[in-house]
Design a binder for these strands. Structure first.
Length: 466
RNA sequence: GGCGCGGUAGCCAAGUGGUAAGGCGGAGGUCUGCAAAACCUCUAUUCAUCGGUUCGAAUCCGAUCCGCGCCUCCA
C-alpha cells in the first residue's frame, strides 16, 4: 500500500515518492497578515495539517514551511491607515494567527519565514532572472517576468497562453509591461509605500508577491522539492508564477506534486461581508463553539470538495464528538490501569486497516471517519456483551490515540467542574439516597442553570458541560 | 468565451462498472425514581433529467437542466 495524492500538475492520482526516501519536504502558502484569518483560510490550513499529520502517521519525516506574507498592498495600506510601522502592525496579526492555529489544534510547521526577513534572498533570485534575460526592468524601475521567455507557462493551471504571448506591447496604463500576462518581480518605490522600502541593485522598492514563495521555499527546502499546497485560487496566477520564476532561475523542476484544496462556502454562498456570512475563527468562538468542533467540521469534508459551512453542521459536529468522547470514557472505565496487550480486537484491527486505506487514497477523510464510527459501534457492542477486557480496552485506547495523531479532535476540551457544582452534585446524591426526588430534581435544575448536565451512571453521577 | 468542480436520504457526505459507507436528525427499544446521556435496532428498490454502451451503470458515453469556482496578487 502506498500513499496516493492528487497532483494538480497532472490532474491524476499518483503515489508520493519524495526525492529523499522517507522525508517529505513541503511548502504551504500561509496567511497575509493584515487581518484575522477567516474560516475559509483555516479550511486550507487544516487540510495541510491533516496532510502533515498523515504523512507522519505513515512514517515519513516531514519538513514543512509556511510563509507569512507581511509585506504587500494590503499590509502596507492597513498599517498606514492605523499609523503604525509595518512590522508593529503585522505582529498583532501574526500573533493572532498562531493563537488561532493552537485553538484549532493545528500542528506547528518546522519553519514560518516572514517575507520581510528574506528580501536579500528575493533580490538575489531576481538578479539571477535579470542575468538570464527572463526578467526586465520597466521605465518606472519595476522588474517584470517575461512569460514569453518561459514556454511552459500555464502548465499548472492548464492555460493556453499562446494568444497572450503573441500580444503586442501593452500600453503605459498596464504598468509598462511587455505583455499583459507578465507579472511583477519587484515593485518600484511608490509614495504610498512610505517607509516600506529596500535597496536593490536596480533601484529602491519592494518585492512582488510571488517571488517570496520561490525564494523562501528554495531556501528552506532546496531548488527542487516534493510538495506544495494551497487553495485552488492560488493555482493561477500565484503558483503558476512561482513555477515560472523558480524554474527559469534554476533550470530544475521546482515542485513534484501540487495539492490544492477547494473553497469553503457558507450556506452555499461565497463568504462575503456584505452577505453577513463572513466569519473569522474568533466570531465562531464568540458564539460558543470550540476550536475542536470547528476543526471537526472543517476537516470532515474531502479537501478537493467545496465545503459548505453551516451552523447545522457545526451542531452535528458537536453531537458526533460527544459520542466519540462517550466511547473513550467507557473504554477508560474498563481499562483502568491495565497495560495494553498489543493485540487489537478484530473489529479494531479492521478499523485501523480501513482508516489507513482510506487516507492512503488522496486523504479520503469521509471513509476514514466511517471506519472510526464503525469501530465505535462494534466496540460498544463488545462492551455491552462484556467481551472486552481491561487490556483490550487499553489497547483500543492506544489505537484511538494513534487515530488522534492524524485527526486531532479526539482529545476532549478540558472541562473541570468548579467546587460549587461539585458541592451541589453531592447534595443531590444525598437527596437521592433519601429518595427525596423533588429536592434531587431541584438541584438538577440548579446545575442546569449553571451549565452542567448530570448523567447518572453505574459508576455514579457525572457532570457534563452543556 | 477559456479552464475546472459539483448535483447521492430531511440535512451533511463517501462510493467512479458488480448491485447504495458514515455522521447529524427522526422512529422504536434497553437502561433509569423520573430524567439526561449513552447503547442497540430501523431509517435511499435508488444516485439532477433524458437517451446510449454493457450480462450488469450512481459509476462509462452523448445531450439537457441547475449550482459553484478561477481566468493577474482572495486559502
Amino acid at each position: 500500500m502506498a500513499f496516493k495524492l492528487h497532483n494538480t500538475l497532472t490532474r491524476q492520482l499518483a503515489e508520493l515518492r519524495p526525492g529523499e526516501p522517507g522525508h517529505v519536504r513541503f511548502y504551504t502558502c500561509g496567511p497575509t497578515v493584515y487581518n484575522f484569518a477567516h474560516i475559509g483560510n483555516f479550511r486550507a490550513y487544516i487540510f495541510e495539517d491533516l496532510l502533515r499529520r498523515y504523512l507522519k502517521f505513515r512514517g515519513f519525516r516531514v519538513t514543512q514551511v509556511m510563509n507569512l506574507t507581511d509585506v504587500d498592498d494590503k499590509t502596507i495600506r492597513s498599517s498606514r491607515e492605523q499609523g503604525l510601522p509595518l512590522r508593529q502592525f503585522t505582529k498583532k496579526y501574526i500573533d493572532a494567527f498562531f493563537e488561532d492555529l493552537a485553538v484549532l489544534r493545528v500542528e506547528r510547521a518546522e519553519h514560518y519565514p516572514a517575507a520581510t526577513d528574506h528580501v536579500p534572498e528575493m533580490i538575489a533570485l531576481i538578479q539571477t532572472l535579470l542575468d538570464k534575460g527572463v526578467g526586465y526592468k520597466s521605465d518606472d524601475g519595476s522588474i517584470y517576468f517575461s512569460i514569453a521567455k518561459f514556454p511552459s507557462y500555464g502548465k499548472l493551471a492548464h492555460l493556453d497562453m499562446t494568444g497572450l504571448r503573441s500580444g503586442a506591447r501593452v500600453a503605459q496604463d498596464e504598468y509598462e509591461k511587455e505583455s499583459a500576462a507578465d507579472f511583477a518581480l519587484w515593485k518600484a518605490w511608490d509614495e504610498k509605500d512610505g517607509a516600506v522600502v529596500w535597496d536593490a541593485p536596480w533601484g529602491r522598492g519592494r518585492p512582488g508577491w510571488h517571488i517570496e514563495c520561490s525564494a523562501m521555499s528554495m531556501k528552506y527546502l532546496g531548488q527542487s522539492f516534493d510538495l506544495h499546497t494551497g487553495g485552488v485560487d492560488n493555482i493561477f496566477p500565484h503558483h503558476e508564477d512561482e513555477i515560472a520564476q523558480s524554474e527559469a532561475a534554476t533550470g530544475q523542476p521546482f515542485v513534484k506534486y501540487w495539492m490544492h484544496c477547494a473553497h469553503l462556502v457558507v450556506d452555499g454562498k461565497k463568504m462575503s461581508k456584505s452577505l453577513g456570512n463572513f466569519f473569522t475563527l474568533r466570531d465562531l468562538l464568540d458564539k460558543g463553539y470550540s476550536g475542536r468542533e470547528i476543526r471537526y467540521e472543517l476537516l470532515a469534508t474531502h479537501y478537493r470538495q467545496s465545503l459548505n459551512f453551516t451552523f447545522t453542521a457545526l451542531d452535528a459536529a458537536r453531537a458526533a464528538l460527544g459520542r466519540l468522547d462517550e466511547f473513550s470514557d467507557r473504554l477508560r472505565t474498563i481499562a483502568g490501569v491495565a497495560d495494553p496487550d498489543h493485540h487489537l480486537p478484530a473489529w479494531a484491527q479492521q478499523a485501523l486497516d480501513a482508516f489507513t486505506a482510506a487516507l492512503d487514497e488522496d486523504l479520503n477523510i469521509s471513509a476514514a471517519l466511517a471506519a472510526l464510527f464503525d469501530m465505535i459501534t462494534a466496540g460498544n457492542r463488545a462492551m455491552n456483551e462484556k467481551t472486552l477486557n481491561a487490556a483490550g480496552a487499553s489497547t483500543v485506547l492506544g489505537l484511538l490515540k494513534r487515530f488522534d495523531s492524524v485527526l486531532g479532535f479526539l482529545q476532549p476540551e478540558q472541562q473541570q467542574a468548579d467546587a460549587d457544582a461539585l458541592a451541589l452534585l453531592e447534595q443531590r446524591q444525598a437527596a437521592r439516597k433519601a429518595k427525596n426526588w423533588p429536592e434531587s430534581d431541584r438541584i438538577r435544575d440548579e446545575l442546569k442553570k449553571r451549565g452542567w448536565v448530570i448523567q447518572d451512571t453505574a459508576q455514579g453521577p457525572k457532570l457534563k458541560k452543556m
